[in-house]
Amino acid sequence: MAVLLIKRFVYGLLVIYLVVTATFFIMRAIPGGPFTAEKKVSPAVARSIEEKYGLNQPLGVQYLNYLNRVARLDLGLSMKYPGRTVNELIGESFPVSALLGLLALMVSVAAGLIMGAFAALRYQRWPDLAILATVTLCLCVPNFALASLLVYIFSLKLKWLPAAMWGSPLQAVLPVLALSALPAAFIARLFRAEMIDVLGKDFIKMARAKGLSDMRLIACHVLKIAVIPVLSYLGPLATELLTGIFIVEKIFAIPGLGQYYLNSIINRDYSVTLGITIFYIALLVAFNLLVDLAYLFLNPRAGLEWGEQYERA
């Protein structure tokens, strides 16, 4: 198992390397550079700027230098924001994105599980149908539309919540809702199906026959199994949240990493684009590794067949 873990780790590093290389060359291939600007500068000034960022060297040398720096965890200087390093930029804005993402993750998992469980326990009765309808709606509405709708209702009409910005807990409510609606719906649907499946199993009847309460039954016998597909969704969910965060941060003017990422691509801020790409990929790789570990922890049979989902009896 340790071997498998190491294998996964090495595989993760390889993924990071490939993505970095691809991003590095793709960024350079797009027309326009970080200092392509409306206002022209004298060649001497342009040269001094290029020298400052090492852009005057051949591409291969730049690439090797970059890899060398990345290996030392130095993501370089932003070309758009003079005097700011990419590390600084990530260090400042990532905690915000992380908090937003974490809140959304918790809300979507909690809401998804609760809705899914509730629907499954009221299978084909009206609460189930109501939840299914809500879920379907949430899956159809894109998060920017939902965000605008939420702002319109809760901020402009009801005046309960601020429309945007970040800092107070009230300001977190709408973005977290906008961000977690879709994953919550997805989890609810997944969990509902799995719960219905599990609830029909003999061991559930057995557990009931032992005289267990419904609460305990669900907590001890159903959740642990039904949560496995949800667990395997957490990897894709993290990706989903990362991309969702870009949009939500923009709409709600939240000073997170997503805004820098999008702008850096438009501005050809090579070092920022690359730096954030590396950071995101590393994060996703680490997160998936964590999910695998959680999987191992929850499923006693995974020790035998790593990664293979528990087969139903």
């Binding site: 702002v151 945007a164 709600f252």
Partner: peptide, 18 residues
């Protein structure tokens, strides 16, 4: 000085008194 990039959000904040 706030940095609200989305014009619709900015308008909502203006109407909202933010």
């Amino acid at each position: 000085m706030t940095m609200v990039d989305n014009p619709n959000t900015a308008l909502a904040m203006f109407e909202n008194g933010q």
